[in-house]
Design a binder for these strands. Structure first.
Lengths: 237, 237
DNA sequence: CGCTCATTTGAGGAACTTCAAGGTCAGTGG
DNA sequence: CCACTGACCTTGAAGTTCCTCAAATGAGCG
C-alpha cells in the first residue's frame, strides 16, 4: 500500500559479471535431483550464476522470464503486482531452494528481491527437454510446480480469515519453511508481509501485538521472534 | 458460509459402472497431446470413465487423489475447504478441459461437483512416466500445472480488491474461459461464487445489482447474463 | 395455487482501513 | 559520547466496507 520510490522507479543494480561462490548452507540446484553425477553435470551446463541482487531491486518483469527459470540460493524473492494507484499485492515469497518463474507473461507480475539475494538462472527449454529424458527430473519439476500451486491455494484460503489469523499463520508457515529454528528471524519487511496478507501495515502491527499479548509469540530486538506456542498459533481465528 | 446439509453429510451417488459416451462438444483428454495416434492409444489405456457425478456430491477427498488425476469432460468441479464452523472457501473451479488433482494431501481439500459433471480418471504414475518419454506430454503436464498456478495467483490478487471488482472480474473471467459466447450462462450457484470470492451471498448479490445498474451487464432469466460492456467490467474498482 | 429454495433488500454492527501522530532503532556526523 | 536523521514500526481515533441478522420478493415445480 505504501508508495515508495523504489516501487515506482525500480532500479536494477546487480552486476551480471560478479559470480559468487555458493555457501555450504545455501540451496544447491544440482542437489535437487540426487547424486547422479552425469545428471548433475548436465544441470550445471544449463545454469548461469549465482547472480546477486540487492534488496528491493527488480529482478525481472514477468514478460522477461519466458526463457529462464530462476532458482533461489540465498535470500528472499517476492513476486508482486504494482498497481498505478501505488498499492501493491505480493503473490508469493520464494525462499532458498525454490524455483521462480513458472508462470509467464499473462499476469505481468514483477519479480523483486525482498532481501539481498543470490539466484541461479536456468535455461527453461533445456530443463524441460532434460525432464523428457529422465523421470527424476520430470518428477522434480512436477513437484516444484505442484508445491507452489499448493502454497498459492493455501494463500487463497488464508485471505478468507481474520487479520490476526493471517498474521499467525504467516509466521508459523515461515518458521516451518525456514527450518523450525529456535528463533524466527523474519527476513522481509512488515510492508512486504502486509502486502502479502492483504492488510495494511497498521493492521498487521496490531495483529502481531495481539499475538504477543496472548503469549503466543515473543519479540527479540531486530525482527527476531520466538514462537512460544506454535500449536496455539495455528489455532488462532 | 452457508451450512447446508450436503456439506456436512455429503453423499456420493455416482454409479461407477455407468459409462457415458462423450459428446462431440465435450472436452477430450486424448486430444490435448495432438494427433499422434500411438500416443493417444497409450493415453486411452491410462484412463477410466467418463464417470458421472451429480451436483453437490463429493468426488474425492484430497487424501484420495494420490494415485489418480481427473480430467473434466463436462460440467464444473470445485475444490473447497469445508470448515467445522460451517463456512466454506472454494479454492478453484475446474471447467471442461481442465485437470483436477495436482495438489495432494496437505491441504485436505474436498473435490466436489459444482454442477452435474463427467470426469475421466487417469493413473498418475502412468502419465508421469509417459511424460518422461515424450516431450509433448511433458509440456502438456507442465502447461496444465502452470496454468492452474496462474489462475491461483490471479485468485490471490482478486482477494485484495473490492467486492464489486471481484464480482466483475469473476464474471468476465468465466465468460472468457467458457469461450466468449453471446450469453453467459453461469453454471454454478451464487453460494458457490460467493465462497470462491470470499464474500457473502448478500454482498455478491448487491455487487451484481450494482454492475447491472451501471449498465455493464444485463440479466436474462435463469442465471443467464449478457456482458454488455466487457471492457468496462474489467475496469471496475 | 401453494410450497420450497434462491435471491434481493434493509438496518445495524464488526473488522479493517485511513489519516495522523508518536516511538524505536541503526547509522552518521559533530 | 550524544544529538540528528531517516526508515520502519506502533498506537489512537474516525471513517468505510463488508458482514450479520431479519424480512421480503421472486423462480421453479408439484
Amino acid at each position: 500500500m505504501a508508495n515508495l520510490d523504489f516501487r515506482t522507479t525500480p532500479v536494477v543494480e546487480f552486476d551480471d559479471t560478479k559470480i559468487f561462490g555458493t555457501a555450504d548452507t545455501a540451496a544447491n540446484f544440482a542437489k535437487v535431483v540426487g547424486d547422479d553425477a552425469s545428471l548433475q553435470r548436465k544441470l550445471s551446463a544449463l545454469q548461469r550464476g549465482p547472480v546477486r541482487f540487492y534488496q528491493n531491486n527488480v529482478i525481472a518483469l514477468n514478460e522477461d522470464v519466458a526463457d529462464h527459470l530462476m532458482f533461489v540460493v540465498t535470500g528472499v524473492v517476492r513476486s508482486c503486482k504494482n498497481r498505478k494507484s501505488g498499492n501493491r499485492s505480493i503473490v508469493s515469497f520464494y525462499l532458498p531452494g525454490d524455483f521462480v518463474g513458472w508462470v509467464d507473461a499473462k499476469l505481468s507480475l514483477s519479480i523483486e528481491a525482498s532481501t539481498d539475494t543470490e539466484l541461479l538462472f536456468i535455461k527453461r527449454t533445456g530443463l524441460v527437454s532434460l525432464a523428457a529424458q529422465n523421470v527424476r527430473v520430470a518428477n522434480v519439476l512436477l513437484t516444484a510446480t505442484t508445491n507452489e500451486l499448493a502454497r498459492a491455494q493455501e494463500h487463497v484460503l488464508l485471505m478468507n480469515k481474520s487479520a490476526k489469523c493471517r498474521a499467525a499463520t504467516f509466521l508459523s508457515d515461515l518458521w516451518v519453511r525456514l527450518g523450525k529454528a529456535q528463533y524466527l528471524d523474519v527476513p522481509m519487511s512488515h510492508q512486504d508481509i502486509a502486502d502479502y496478507l492483504g492488510l495494511t501495515i497498521e493492521t498487521l502491527s496490531r495483529s502481531i501485538t495481539d499475538l504477543e499479548r496472548a503469549g503466543l509469540i515473543a519479540r527479540v530486538p531486530s525482527r527476531r521472534l520466538i514462537l512460544q506456542n506454535h500449536f496455539g498459533l495455528r489455532r488462532v481465528n
